[in-house]
Design a protein around this nucleic acid. Sequence first.
DNA 1: AAACTATATCGTAATATTGCAATATAGAAA
DNA 2: TTTCTATATTGCAATATTACGATATAGTTT
Lengths: 110, 110
Amino acid sequence: MGATKTDHFTDSQNELAVLAKALGHPARIAIMEYLLKVDACICGDIVNELPLSQPTVSQHLKELKNAGLIKGNIEGNAICYCINEPGLEKIKGFFEHISNHLAKKRNECC
Amino acid sequence: MGATKTDHFTDSQNELAVLAKALGHPARIAIMEYLLKVDACICGDIVNELPLSQPTVSQHLKELKNAGLIKGNIEGNAICYCINEPGLEKIKGFFEHISNHLAKKRNECC
DNA sequence: AAACTATATCGTAATATTGCAATATAGAAA
DNA sequence: TTTCTATATTGCAATATTACGATATAGTTT
């Protein structure tokens, strides 16, 4: 026990869960928002923007990258991070899908 | 250490993280998908739909409810669950916000 | 080469999550 | 009221996450 039983669910369900989980921490929401705000790749100053230590930020970046929500390119000395659109579109599509369905069939009960 | 430092982030960031985290498990994605599929409130058969024990499913439902993604009404003997639109719209809005920004300013680097 | 800068990894402690058996709760049916 | 059925709660073991100090890695600058 303790480990998620991923093999009991579909690939799609597991993929969506990985994406959602990656955003399930305020620091990682903050990173995404910051990447969006500066409207470009970030090379260097993410650590200064967050109230966490450098190793912790590095770990959060790694998780976002593993989930496919950001991508990082080595840019000389620094590393250049930016939002990875395919990952973002995938999870955005999930919510749009739900929203569209709900709009069609107005909740009859509850 | 070990606990998320929620007090270092904004309310909005924490709210979004809670919503995302609630969906960060394939069972909870599956529950949302099932609630959508049946196109109505579910009274009773969620446990049979999932490859998990009744207490585990109950726990997952509780987490989705706490996060504000579903709502449950007592319906006689059973409990009637369905998707809670406001919660869903909030997180959907986050992804649309990002997507709109990205569409405006095409990624110059990376 | 030596010092500096930026980022990643390791190790580890604190805390959270996952899953389920056992049990509790509460309405429905008999 | 007893039994049945559906859901929730408790308790606990296994595993995962969070955070950071210390250290490693690697490019840049002097």
